[in-house]
Simulated scan of single mutants.
Amino acid sequence: MNRPLFPDVIVNGETIPQADIAAEAQQHEAPAGKPGVAWRSAAKALVVRNLLLQEARKKGVVSEPAELGEGRRETHDEALMRNLLDDAVNPATPTNEEVYAFWEKDPSRFMSPPLWEASHILSACDIGDDDSVAAAKARAVAITKRAHANPKGFARLAHDESDCSSKASGGALGQLGPNDTVPEFEVVLVDMEPGQITLEPIQTRFGFHVVKLDACAEQNILPFDAVKKQLTEALQKAAWAKAAQEFVGELVKSAEIKGVDMLAA
């Protein structure tokens, strides 16, 4: 007779099907050749799920599945667990003093993003065509020399030479923040000074760019009032997560669980 690879997991007399644990294990990472790691993680997750569902049924929690957006709706079990936790987990809202104290520990954690005002001249090319790339680069190098010879004429040069629609505004791209442009472009802006023009063209998937930094606003520490709402919400979420963990911990302590050690790392 073949024995199962892993023991049955039983929670307060209810056996979790091996097939359910195997399916859940697909969502857990494990070192190569060590399926037991993923199996134990999956088993623990399903033990917690079962304990929450058992507690919800014991307390007569009503299942009211909610819409989750994009055509997805909660399952009956998901609604039971959510409603149980909504009723059982009610941490105190952090006071204004507590939020301020958290901010005051290290205000430098809360910085405004840098902002740049930049202009560019694009020499476009088909990035997959070597001849097109070489021609665009040579053209961009020539444009760079012209831009450095007459920095004040950058806008006029962009209007006449750029392959970007921004040519209509003299190459101006407006105000840019982190992730507003491609990484190769942004990394150049970080090291530039206002009024500076790149010494060499910058290559991106669009072609080659001659870049001029018009102005920049450095990162600054955000005042408490600017981050108070965000911090309050973050501390509320952290408090809820801690209280929910403690609630589950009490369920585990009072439960009869066989087949997996819930306290093992």
Rank of each mutant, 00 (worst) to 15 (best):
G259Q: 05
K212R: 15
A134L: 05
S254C: 01
N220V: 14
A215G: 08
V190K: 15
N179W: 11
L115T: 12
E117W: 14
E98N: 07
D86E: 15
P194F: 09
D87G: 13
A25T: 04
A138S: 12
A241L: 12
E256T: 12
A79Y: 11
V227C: 03
K167S: 15
P114F: 07
L46G: 02
A158G: 06
W39P: 02
R156N: 13
I197H: 13
V89P: 12
F110E: 00
E200A: 11
L157R: 07
D129L: 02
A265K: 12
A147R: 11
M111V: 01
Q54Y: 02
H209Y: 08
G69P: 11
D129R: 00
G177R: 10
I143T: 09
P7C: 03
E233V: 12
E98R: 11
E97G: 03
Q18F: 10
P107T: 07
A56E: 09
N96P: 02
T15H: 00
L52F: 05
A142S: 13
G13A: 01
N150F: 00
I143N: 10
L53Y: 08
L80A: 03
V260W: 00
A134D: 11
Q196L: 07
G170Q: 03
V248Y: 03
V252D: 01
P194K: 09
E184L: 09
D180K: 05
H76G: 03
A135D: 10
R73W: 09
I202L: 10
F102G: 04
T15C: 05
R146C: 00
T232M: 12
G170I: 00
Q219W: 09
R57D: 14
N96S: 14
E200Q: 14
A66D: 14
P151Q: 06
K44Q: 05
S63Q: 10
T144C: 13
H120F: 04
V37T: 13
Q230A: 11
E250S: 09
D214N: 14
I202V: 15
W240D: 02
V141H: 13
I16V: 06
A23M: 10
A43V: 02
L176E: 06
I21N: 03
E218K: 15
E256R: 10
T15I: 10
W240L: 05
Y100S: 03
V141C: 10
D225E: 15
A56I: 05
F247M: 01
